[in-house]
Amino acid sequence: MRFFARLFAFVACLAAVPAGAQQAAPTTPDTTARATAPQTTDKENLWLLDLSDGGRVTIWLRPDLAPKMVERIKLLTRQRFYDGLLFHRVIEGFMAQGGDPKGDGTGGSSLPNLPAEFNYFPHVRGVVSAARADDENSANSQFFIVLQPRLALDKKYTVFGRVLDGMAYVDAIERGEPPANPTRILRAYIAADNPPTYFAAAPPPPPSLGAPVTLPGTAPAAAAAPAKAAARPKPSSVAAPRPAAVAAPEKAASTDQ
């Protein structure tokens, strides 16, 4: 009888252990939740750039990644701030930078600089990110479009969008620091504002990797760069590529007005 009583007690203990262990197990809160991205058809978050190289570039704005920078882009676009501005720094295999009313990388809008909104999105081809000076909180109006992946910039610059359509026209932007014949933004729109229909020119052929691209009828960009480099103010910028290594960001002047 005692044998059966002890066996019953032992079985009861075994049955109770998993339940007790399950109740005591710690719970880990889910911290992976992210803001919902807008639809790629949401016209309020489509930024249209009509370029002087003959094409319209459609950029998907991401307020879920950088709400302050997206708000700034929309405000300046609706003020027609970007109309006529040039791409002043374009590096083959790296990026095309614009959005400076001075045209030399040292300018910005009259609005205050924005705090950094570094996020998880990588600097892959077609990404649009905010240019800044040495101060992480110095983004203002300037931006750059990534031509080839540059993951060393991740979480150091604010990604706020990506090209959906017209990347061939981004590839055709005149190269140089500064370019000899810079490509300009003729007009910028937010798609929700019902911009006029744009009839783009035939897409240009893709550039040869590693070789500067010069549009027909223009001089090579490299010929103009050395003469102007010494006098050019140090700009808001992004880390420039160097052979066989990723370069550190260059010293840059603030965009404060």
Rank of each mutant, 00 (worst) to 15 (best):
G107E: 13
A133L: 01
A139E: 04
P29M: 14
S236R: 06
L164H: 06
I190F: 08
G55K: 01
G84D: 00
L14C: 13
P195L: 04
L215A: 14
T106Q: 07
T28L: 12
P196C: 13
L86H: 08
K251L: 08
Q79L: 00
M69S: 06
R175L: 07
L186A: 12
Q23G: 01
A244G: 02
Q39E: 11
A116Q: 00
A200N: 01
D165Y: 02
A21M: 07
K155F: 12
F81A: 12
R80D: 09
R2G: 14
L14N: 06
K228L: 08
I145W: 00
A21P: 04
R232D: 10
K251P: 10
T77R: 05
E250V: 09
L215S: 11
T32A: 08
H88S: 14
L153A: 03
P204A: 15
A224Y: 08
P235A: 05
A221L: 02
S236T: 04
G103W: 07
A244S: 12
L48T: 09
Y198C: 09
K156L: 10
P206A: 15
P220D: 05
R162C: 07
T41Y: 03
R56M: 05
S208M: 07
P63M: 02
T77C: 02
P179V: 00
N137L: 10
S52W: 04
A211W: 12
Q23L: 12
A247L: 10
A230Q: 02
Q39C: 13
D256W: 09
A224F: 00
A219I: 15
A180L: 03
I145G: 09
P195W: 10
A172H: 10
E250Y: 08
A168E: 12
V146R: 06
A239S: 14
D53R: 08
R187T: 15
V159C: 06
P29H: 09
V170D: 11
T41A: 04
F199T: 14
A25P: 01
P226W: 08
D193M: 04
W47G: 00
L61E: 03
I73W: 02
A247F: 13
K251T: 14
A244R: 10
L75Y: 15
L49E: 03
P204R: 12
A224I: 07
L153T: 11
L46A: 11
P63S: 12
E174H: 10
P149E: 09
A221E: 01
R62F: 03
I190R: 15
D104Y: 01
A245F: 05
K74S: 15
T214C: 09
F143Y: 14
P207C: 08
F10A: 13
V124P: 06
D83W: 05
P29Y: 15
D50E: 05
A152D: 14
S141G: 14
A33G: 09
F118Q: 11
F10C: 06
S236E: 01
L114G: 01
A25Y: 04
R89Q: 10
A5P: 00
K228Y: 04
Q257I: 15
S52N: 00
V159M: 01
K43T: 08
V128L: 07
M95P: 09
E92R: 13
S138K: 10
A152P: 09
A223G: 07
